[in-house]
Amino acid sequence: MGLPDADTIVTYPTGELRTIATVVAVAPHDDRLAVVTDRTSIHPVDAAWPDQPADAGVLRVGSREYAIRDAVVAATDGDELHVGALPVRPGTEGWTFVVAHLLDADAAVAEGDEVELEADAATRRSLSLGHTACHAASLALNRALADRWSKAAREDALGAPDFDGIAITSSRIEPMGSVDRYRLNKSLRRAGFDAAGLADALDELAASVDATLAGWVDADAPVRVERVGDGLTERRTWVCELPDASARIPCGGTHAGSLGELGAVHVSFAMEDDGGTPVLAMTTRSTPAT
């Protein structure tokens, strides 16, 4: 088995769905076939923060077409290809990081093949809307909770105390939305966040977040993804030109072109319990105009 010697070039940050590529490695992985190409338009599950699912799509070679069952990040130090579970952090010096496209085990694909990769447009669109709504909702949530901080805290991209960045434990991007969970633990309270009465004010919190989101959607704030380079591990940043400021959040996902594309955006909240620690769960849903 040959091993890749350069990071995969990724084209999905620009919104590209289709690309022509060369297969640089093929390896069995569990009951699938991992196919690595020199470039790809398929968004994989991120190894460090797996919030956005992989694109659905197909790989075509000659007249044959194979469904891409999953896409994950893989890494090699020149001796072995590690697929999915990485032994080092992405970007570690001396390692190459690539996208492994997982196909059915009987797929007839070989190193050196020229292939066409195409992401499913509807799936990409729904996840992109969900990811953009997630970022916007996190900023609106920080603003809504700003008066609950009694001490100076790390600030978000708009200058509000960064509740989302400090308290978040998990984020899951879904079609047209997301689910984010925040631990209201002792360390958060010591940092100056007052959670008293929050459980009884979830409807008011949702109304505040919704109102902020409605204003930003009405303004059709433009969204773009900035990147340092084309490689898989190159730094990428979500940028949204809101009416009163430019928001910037590090992000490796895919996104809508503006907040106006989200249509109506609403959040809902629930309090959960994690071994005695309260957890605030925020569900975000986008309903694009037809």
Score class of each variant (00 low, 15 high):
259 L>Q: 00
12 Y>Q: 09
83 V>Y: 08
3 L>V: 09
178 S>P: 12
50 P>A: 03
263 G>N: 07
178 S>A: 15
24 V>I: 13
16 E>D: 10
287 T>C: 01
285 R>C: 14
257 G>Y: 09
158 L>S: 07
54 A>W: 09
25 A>V: 07
171 S>T: 15
15 G>E: 09
179 V>E: 02
166 I>N: 04
150 S>Q: 09
230 D>N: 15
100 A>W: 08
20 I>A: 13
154 R>K: 11
48 A>H: 11
21 A>Y: 05
68 I>P: 05
64 R>N: 11
37 T>R: 02
17 L>Y: 02
223 V>A: 04
136 A>E: 06
93 E>M: 14
167 A>F: 00
263 G>M: 02
219 A>M: 10
18 R>L: 08
250 P>I: 03
272 E>R: 14
164 D>F: 15
149 W>T: 08
99 V>L: 03
130 G>H: 03
211 A>Y: 04
147 D>P: 00
32 R>C: 09
180 D>P: 06
80 E>I: 14
254 T>N: 03
100 A>N: 05
165 G>P: 01
169 T>S: 07
79 D>A: 14
23 V>H: 00
171 S>V: 15
144 A>Q: 04
4 P>R: 03
269 F>R: 00
120 D>R: 06
280 L>E: 01
160 A>T: 13
63 S>I: 12
238 W>H: 06
196 A>S: 13
145 L>C: 04
111 E>V: 14
229 G>M: 06
27 A>L: 11
186 K>W: 08
57 G>Q: 00
7 D>I: 07
129 L>D: 07
105 A>Q: 06
124 R>E: 09
230 D>V: 15
82 H>K: 07
61 V>I: 10
218 D>P: 06
98 V>D: 05
290 T>Y: 10
111 E>S: 10
51 D>C: 12
214 A>E: 10
29 H>P: 04
102 L>W: 07
178 S>D: 14
154 R>G: 11
155 E>V: 15
47 A>Y: 11
64 R>P: 04
29 H>L: 06
6 A>V: 14
13 P>R: 03
45 V>R: 04
226 E>N: 11
277 T>S: 01
202 L>K: 01
144 A>F: 01
260 G>C: 02
224 R>M: 08
55 D>F: 14
234 E>S: 05
126 S>E: 10
31 D>L: 09
94 G>T: 09
